[in-house]
Design a protein around this nucleic acid. Structure first.
Lengths: 208, 208
DNA sequence: GTCTATAAGAAGATAGAC
DNA sequence: GTCTATCTTCTTATAGAC
């Protein structure tokens, strides 16, 4: 990994742990193994490092914003996969996806950095909402909608069904980001959540 | 309002808008209408202002952490109130509570300040989880549990039912905090959410 | 308790040698 | 491209008059 990439990597780690304003350029440089002035040969300012990270995030959008997607870009194909899963397989899949978004270093650090930074910046706020709220809801809405069409799930209001599926996952994820000790409990809750969701919206539920 | 209280008030506003590190003592002083050095007659440091705010928050815990409570401290009495509400009245109540937590200046500013600050500080992180996740879930769990006992709601797993009720509200609240333009849509979604929740867990639902 | 003046120190950024 | 030395600016905080 070249120096420029190492700078971005260490900066992302530090920004995600302490927030932009609490990280010093000298700190980033130290972790990379150079002195602060050398860093200015690679980036013209601290802000430029942050901007480069945000650009990188938007470019890698599919990798990280494909939150809770199986393939991430084809709801029809993904629905076909879901369709044939047993409840146990579905739970296992859900757990694995949850663990991926919780632990994948790239995804996790960006989420934490953006969570903090998005509070003071309108543009970043929009990025946050898109990646962690709107896009997951939209994708899962398609997925669950297809399953309703197939007769696998039953719901009058697909939008609300999607909210009921995703909101608990969003809440568990933000809880674990703030307190990693909650992870074990969160995975158990996730399992129960998927079971209950299946029970409520699955074949046996009377939708009125 | 005396100067000391005005300092706390303006500091809370600024901290909630920009985050602790991005607020200068001189900025707080200016809003109060004094010069920065005068401020040090009231607080010995910038950190002392923040600490005082956190103490105030913990003291006023009931006022703001009673998130989505009716009375806020007596689940049995509150359950008795809920029991006799029609769906329309319940929705109206839910909307009003949501608007209160979204708009009440004191509650809103603390929530935003804590959301940011809680990422770098373990103690604050615990306070955040307690006030915005654990306590609401625990209180609403009692409330909904009582309604299950009364036969008003039906659920095998009350904990999951509570999660299904609260997680969407939590998600809508954080979404509106980040982007106030979403408020109108959020209230509509809230209404649909409560209706669907009623439908799923109300008398007519077959819980197996 | 508020002011002006100022100290003390931190942090971002530049200059110029190697 | 990295270093040491340094500049500049900003920000917290203090001193001391009123």
């Amino acid at each position: 990994m070249d120096t420029k990439s190492r700078i971005l990597d260490e900066a992302l780690t530090l920004f995600s742990e302490k927030g932009y304003a609490n990280v010093f350029v000298s700190e980033i440089a130290e972790r990379v193994g150079i002195k602060a002035p050398s860093l200015y040969k690679h980036f013209e300012s601290k802000q430029a490092i942050f901007d480069a990270l945000i650009r990188e995030m938007n470019n890698n959008f599919l990798k990280q914003a494909g939150m809770l997607h199986i393939q991430g870009n084809d709801a029809v194909r993904d629905a076909a996969i879901y369709k044939n899963l047993t409840e146990e397989q579905l739970i296992s899949l859900g757990k694995n996806l949850f663990m991926y978004f919780l632990h994948d270093d790239y995804v996790r650090r960006f989420r934490k950095m953006l969570t903090m930074a998005a509070y003071h910046d309108k543009e970043l706020s929009e990025a946050y909402m898109k990646h962690y709220v709107d896009d997951p809801l939209s994708y899962q809405g398609m997925l669950l909608g297809l399953m309703v069409q197939e007769g696998i799930l039953h719901a009058e209001d697909t939008e609300m069904m999607t909210l009921h599926f995703y909101a608990p996952i969003y809440m568990l994820l933000t809880a674990c980001d703030r307190d990693p000790a909650r992870e074990k409990g969160a995975v158990e809750i996730l399992e129960k959540h998927i079971r209950q969701f299946n029970r409520l919206y699955g074949r046996k539920t009377d939708p009125r």
